Simulated assay, not measured.
Amino acid sequence: MRIGIIGPSENEIVPFIDKIHSKKVKAYAMLKFYSGKYDNKDVVALYCGVCKVNAAIATQILIDKFNITHVMVTGVAGGIDSVLKVGDTVISTEIAYHDVEAGILTEYHPWMDNIYFKADNTLVYVCKKVVEESEFKQKVLFGRIVTGEAFISDSGREDIIKKYNPLCVDMETASIAHVCYVNKIPFLAIRSITDTADESGTEAFENNCVSVAKNSIEVLEKLIEKI
């Protein structure tokens, strides 16, 4: 097993990278890939940059250059479901784009049955065991994540709820899941909430990103230790 771990920004992954042992660094496509051991397991981690294309580039390089067997995403997201508070964590069960027409995925490559990429069942199961056996300061929920390249306004939030009813929204997860789907690589996302309808906007994101990202990393580390 060799696990590829992606965080969109430095704040979302560097605290984990700092814990990798026997670390080596390689650069491809202007990205730095940190390989080594965590809990005696082979890992390759990086921050890919924000947005779907950057995330897809990083994921394909992980698969092609490092022969990873699993991909995990750690980072932050905007809360959509009102049950979520800042700091809570969402584990993906299925993922979709909210800014891509359905027919692009179902009528053309990769000819999906529907618009949802499924998280790996085994990883979800292990993560549920981790949540049952651990004491996290934040609430951890399992469910749908949607991805698109915009911060969500109040009107956009209503449209997304009506069409997808997700727990949260981000800018990378669906594209990473998309690359994993076509390469048949097991995938899971762990995202903690920086902003909600009650505490919204870029200012909330910037104020909460560093502290909230630690919640996601904490779940990630316990998942790797459990595998």
Rank of each mutant, 00 (worst) to 15 (best):
F151P: 11
E149D: 15
M171E: 05
N165S: 15
P166K: 00
T147H: 00
K137R: 11
S192L: 02
E149Q: 13
E158S: 13
V126S: 08
S200P: 15
S134G: 08
K139L: 13
I193Q: 05
E101N: 05
V140D: 00
D159N: 12
T122I: 07
V182K: 07
M171I: 07
V131I: 12
N114I: 12
A174E: 08
N183P: 03
Y116P: 04
E132V: 06
V124M: 04
A119S: 15
A150M: 06
C127K: 07
D154W: 06
I176R: 03
V131K: 10
D113H: 10
K184V: 02
R157F: 12
V146L: 11
L105C: 01
Y181G: 03
I161G: 05
K139W: 05
I193E: 05
T173A: 14
C127M: 09
K162L: 11
I104F: 13
L123P: 00
T122W: 01
L167R: 06
E101S: 10
Y164A: 09
V169A: 14
L105V: 01
E158R: 12
K184R: 12
C168K: 09
C168S: 15
L167N: 06
H178W: 01
E135K: 14
N183W: 07
K128P: 02
Y108E: 08
T194H: 06
K163F: 10
V124F: 04
A150T: 06
L167Q: 07
I160N: 14
P186H: 07
V130G: 03
R157H: 14
D154N: 12
S192Q: 04
E199I: 13
E149P: 07
K163C: 07
G148A: 09
K162Q: 11
V146R: 05
I152D: 00
S200Q: 14
N121P: 02
F117C: 07
